[in-house]
């Protein structure tokens, strides 16, 4: 079986890479193939999700939640079965909006083990909780 593939993208134009890099490393260590495209627009995220034939899309969010929600909507309308999760400096009100769209959300302070467990669940490697 090929390794499950995860696309990781930043929705904003702020290039702080510390958070997503740590997460990507944990996911790779757990056996996932991670494709990082860095700062990307909604269109670029959707195109990469399709072209790279990924099993899960991870969004690093550091800006306004509406920008991230637009990317979520676009991915979900193009790839209706694609699971997404998100992390970053996401305030509580924004976490709720993402969760309402079915995303698992990991604000600062989240444990890497929880993020890896979520990736396993969302790609069907472990049973849903």
């Amino acid at each position: 079986m090929r390794p499950k593939r995860i696309l990781m993208a930043k929705t904003g134009l702020d290039g702080h890479w510390r958070g997503p890099t740590i997460v990507a490393r944990a996911l790779r260590d757990a056996g996932f193939e991670v494709i990082m495209i860095g700062m990307a627009t909604t269109n670029e995220i959707v195109a990469a999700a399709v072209d790279e034939d990924v099993d899960l899309v991870g969004l690093n969010i550091g800006g306004h939640i509406d920008v991230a929600l637009r990317a979520v909507d676009a991915v979900q309308s193009t790839c209706p079965d694609m699971p997404l999760f998100a992390g970053g400096t996401i305030p509580p009100h924004a976490c709720k909006q993402l969760e309402a769209k079915g995303l698992e959300v990991f604000p600062p302070g989240s444990a890497l083990t929880d993020i890896v467990a979520s990736a396993n669940r969302l790609t069907g490697l472990s049973s849903q909780q």
């Binding site: 904003g12 702020d14 627009t41 269109n43 800006g63 306004h64 920008v67």
Partner: peptide, 14 residues
């Protein structure tokens, strides 16, 4: 700029 237009809500946030 197209990169900014794609994220117009982010403008002014920082």
């Amino acid at each position: 700029h197209p990169e900014v237009l794609a994220r117009r809500e982010d403008v002014g946030l920082t």
